[in-house]
C-alpha cells in the first residue's frame, strides 16, 4: 500500500507544486534543410539549452505553489464568463468542458448499466438450463474486447459512409454524419461503453441471483406479490450489496473515461478529464511536456473520484456499522 499507492500519489502531488525547466540562451543560427533540387538555408533566432561541464542540460526546479492548478482550472476566466451569464463559453475552457462530459458520461451510463445488467440477469435466469451456458458465453463477448480496439472498430463502422452509418441512412432515409457534431459522438461513446460494461454487471448480478433464497420468493408468491413486486421488494434488496459494488466500480471506472476518445479520434469534439492529463503529458514534436500541469490535473481527477465515491461508500459504511439505538 505504502510503496504502490501512497508513494506515487505523494510524488504526483509534489510534482504538481513544482515546475522544472532548462536554462536557455538565444542564439542566431543558420540551418540548412533540403528543398527538392537544392537546399534552403534559413538564419533565425533559436534557443539553446545551457549545458554543464558533463554536457548535460542544466535543469532548474522551482516551487510554483498552486499556479499549475490555476492554469488547469482557469478560474478567473470561468468566473468572468459566469458573471456575464455566459455559460456556454465556460465550456470552451478545457477543464470545464472535460468535467461536463465526464460527469454526463458517468451518470448516464450508470443507471443504464444497472438496469440492463439486472434485466439480462433476470431473463437468463428464466431460460431453460440447457441454453444458459451458451447465452452467458455470448453475452460476455463484449467484455473481452480491448476498449481501444472496440473504439477503433466503432470509428470505422460509423465514420463517413461506414457500414453502420450507411445502414442507418437506408433505414431512416436521410443523410447522417455521426462525426459532424459533438452530441452524436457523445452518443457513440456512451453507447459503446454501455455495450462494453453491461456484461460485467450481468455476470455479477446473475451470480447473485443464484444464491437467492427460493423460500422467500415462494412465500412472496403465496402472499400474492406480482412479478414486479417480487423484483422490487425481494430481488433488488437482496442484490443491493452487489449493486453498490457495481456502482462503486463503475463510478471509478467511468470517471476516468479515456480509451473511447482516443480510439474514436473524438478529441476535436469531446474531451474527458483523463484525456487532458494525457494531453499535458504527451510530448509535442519538440519534446516539451507539461508535467506539472499533468500532475495537477491528475490530482484533480483523483479528488473528483473521491468526491463521487463518498456517497455510496458512506452508505455501505453505515450498513456495516449500524449506530446503536
Amino acid at each position: 500500500m505504502l510503496i504502490f499507492i501512497a508513494a506515487p500519489l505523494l510524488l504526483v502531488l509534489i510534482n504538481s507544486f513544482y515546475v522544472t525547466a532548462s536554462k536557455f540562451e538565444t542564439v542566431e543560427t543558420e540551418s540548412c534543410t533540403p528543398g527538392i533540387a537544392g537546399e534552403i538555408c534559413v538564419t533565425e533566432l533559436r534557443t539553446r539549452p545551457l549545458l554543464d561541464e558533463d554536457d548535460k542540460v542544466i535543469r532548474q526546479t522551482r516551487y510554483v505553489g498552486l499556479q499549475s492548478y490555476r492554469n488547469v482550472l482557469e478560474l478567473e476566466k470561468a468566473a468572468g464568463f459566469l458573471i456575464n451569464n455566459d455559460f456556454r463559453s465556460i465550456l470552451t475552457i478545457d477543464f470545464w468542458k472535460a468535467l461536463r462530459f465526464t460527469l454526463t458520461f458517468t451518470f448516464i451510463t450508470l443507471p443504464i448499466m444497472l438496469a440492463a445488467g439486472l434485466g439480462i440477469a433476470l431473463a437468463v435466469n428464466m431460460v431453460s438450463e440447457r441454453f444458459r451456458g451458451q447465452i452467458i458465453f455470448v453475452s460476455l463477448l463484449p467484455l473481452i474486447i480491448t476498449p481501444v480496439i472496440g473504439a477503433l472498430s466503432i470509428r470505422w463502422l460509423f465514420i463517413g459512409d461506414g457500414i453502420l452509418t450507411a445502414a442507418l441512412e437506408m433505414i431512416l432515409e436521410r443523410d447522417i454524419a455521426m462525426f459532424a457534431q459533438a452530441w452524436t459522438v457523445e452518443v457513440l461513446i456512451l453507447f459503446y461503453r454501455v455495450w462494453h460494461i453491461v456484461p460485467f454487471a450481468f455476470v455479477v448480478l446473475y451470480a447473485g441471483l443464484q444464491t437467492l433464497n427460493r423460500d422467500t420468493l415462494e412465500s412472496a408468491i403465496i402472499d400474492g406479490a406480482s412479478r414486479w413486486e417480487r423484483v422490487r421488494y425481494v430481488v433488488v434488496p437482496y442484490l443491493m450489496p452487489l449493486i453498490v459494488f457495481l456502482t462503486v466500480i463503475h463510478l471509478m471506472d467511468s470517471y476516468r473515461v479515456f480509451e473511447e476518445i482516443v480510439g474514436l479520434g473524438a478529441e476535436s469534439h469531446v474531451i474527458s478529464l483523463q484525456w487532458i492529463t494525457y494531453d499535458y503529458l504527451r510530448p509535442d514534436d519538440a519534446g516539451n511536456r507539461a508535467i506539472s500541469r499533468a500532475s495537477a490535473s491528475a490530482m484533480l481527477t483523483m479528488v473528483g473520484i473521491v468526491f463521487i465515491l463518498a456517497l455510496p461508500l458512506r452508505q455501505t459504511w453505515r450498513d456495516y456499522h449500524p449506530r446503536r439505538k
Partner: peptide, 25 residues
C-alpha cells in the same frame, strides 16, 4: 518554406490545437 521547427513552435502547435476546434465548431 521549411517547417519552422523549434521548441517554441512545439508549444505553439499545442496551443493552436487546443483552440482551433472550438473556432471551427
Amino acid at each position: 518554406r521549411p517547417y519552422p521547427a523549434s521548441s517554441q513552435m512545439g508549444l505553439m502547435q499545442s496551443a493552436i490545437a487546443g483552440n482551433i476546434f472550438d473556432y471551427l465548431r
